Amino acid sequence: MSAFAPVPDNDRFPYRAIGARPDFHWPGGRRLAVYIGFNLEHFAFGQGLGAGIGPASPQPDVLNYSWREYGNRVGAWRCLELFDTLSLPAAALVNTALVDHCPELLKAVVERGDELVGHGHSNSFRQSDLGEQDERALLAGCRERLAALQGGRLPGGWLSPWISESPLTPDLLAETGYDYTLNWCHDDRPVPMRTRSGRTLWSVPYPQELNDIPMIMGRQMEGPAFAELIIDHFEEMLAQSAGQSLVMGIALHPYIVGQPHRLRHLRRALRHIVERRDELWITTPGAICAHAQGLAPAQP
């Protein structure tokens, strides 16, 4: 093979520079869409994957398990109180194991009117380890369980646990009825993706920089710096959006930002954003996808 042969590339979307695409507006003539991706996750006790506040211990790893469980028992409720105070909608990215573990938390999210997004059954396990039939069953089953929580309304979006995909994940998402995926962080605008059935699956931008796991746990950035990161990101995107409509997602995990010392700084960052509410479309990824679907196919 030639040393200069083309390298393998994805077959889901072509390369298109962001400045070379047709312009469009979000509802109300807004230029910047902002959403919160609120990760509600459940982890198996004594097995599987999970973020850690300390070095992993032999199972059962009580330290890291109980730290993550703080998010469901305390942190998520504190975050919801903050969202209520600021009149902020959210997209709840839900592990369906929570339906049995703490149904009252999911009931609170549904009663707020938040969007439910499929996020696997548990973040202890990678979707990419599944064969085609098991992966299809996971996608379909999670969709049905979430629909049962909200009067039969089927969720349209998906985020894989640990952003783990098989080569067929976009195809299976389209075939099981999903409209969009949050797995890909390659753009600041929605991107249509090809699938084997011919049905378009939309990629809605989901952040890996504006995300508390990689920034706080991975890069050891604490609450004040993470809040400044959100504010700086927001101000720069708002300025950039004068030339083209953009999407800004904020990815939050309540066992991390729901800790009191971090929640105080998250409150400051979100207040900064809502003070500019009249200039923004504060929304959900499902609404972003629906708007993109209504545009001319080549626009995003």
Results as ranks from 00 to 15, higher is better:
E81V: 04
C185G: 05
A298L: 13
D129R: 11
Y70L: 06
P6R: 06
A3F: 13
N10Q: 15
G48K: 08
R16W: 06
F125R: 01
R145I: 07
H291N: 07
Q208H: 12
R277E: 06
Q220I: 10
L263V: 09
G249K: 03
D129H: 07
E144N: 11
G151Y: 13
R145S: 09
P300M: 09
I163M: 11
W281I: 11
S87L: 09
E275M: 15
P155T: 07
A269E: 00
S160P: 06
E135F: 04
P192D: 12
D134R: 12
D11T: 13
Q59T: 02
C185M: 08
P167S: 12
L130W: 03
W184D: 04
R21K: 14
R262Q: 14
G141Y: 03
P254F: 15
R78Q: 15
Q133V: 12
A51V: 07
G177E: 09
H101N: 06
S197C: 11
N72H: 11
W77C: 09
A76R: 00
Q208M: 15
L86Y: 06
C185T: 14
V110T: 04
A91V: 04
I163N: 02
P167Q: 06
P14N: 15
D232A: 13
Q259F: 10
R194L: 14
P155L: 09
P170W: 10
L93G: 01
A5F: 13
E175T: 07
G151E: 14
T96V: 13
L86W: 08
G28N: 05
A298G: 15
P192E: 10
C79N: 04
A140Y: 03
F83L: 15
A20I: 06
S2W: 12
A227M: 07
H25P: 01
N72K: 04
T284D: 04
S197M: 12
I231Q: 07
A3Y: 10
L159G: 02
H233N: 09
L159H: 05
S197P: 01
T284P: 00
L182N: 01
G48C: 13
E235A: 13
A225F: 14
M237E: 05
P254G: 07
A290Q: 07
A174V: 08
H121I: 14
I18H: 11
G198N: 08
R268P: 00
P14C: 09
I273M: 04
N211T: 06
E279C: 05
A33V: 08
H42L: 13
G54I: 14
Q240N: 10
F125W: 05
L246P: 01
G218C: 11
R112S: 14
T96M: 13
H186T: 15
S66C: 09
E279P: 02
F83M: 05
A5G: 13
L138Q: 11
E279L: 09
P205F: 10
V7W: 06
R145N: 06
W184P: 00
L146D: 01
E144F: 07
W202H: 03
P214L: 14
I250V: 15
G52D: 03
D129T: 15
W162G: 05
L173N: 00
L106Y: 02
T195H: 12
F83I: 07
P89M: 12
L149C: 13
F38G: 00
P8V: 14
L139A: 04
A33Y: 03
V7C: 03
G71R: 02
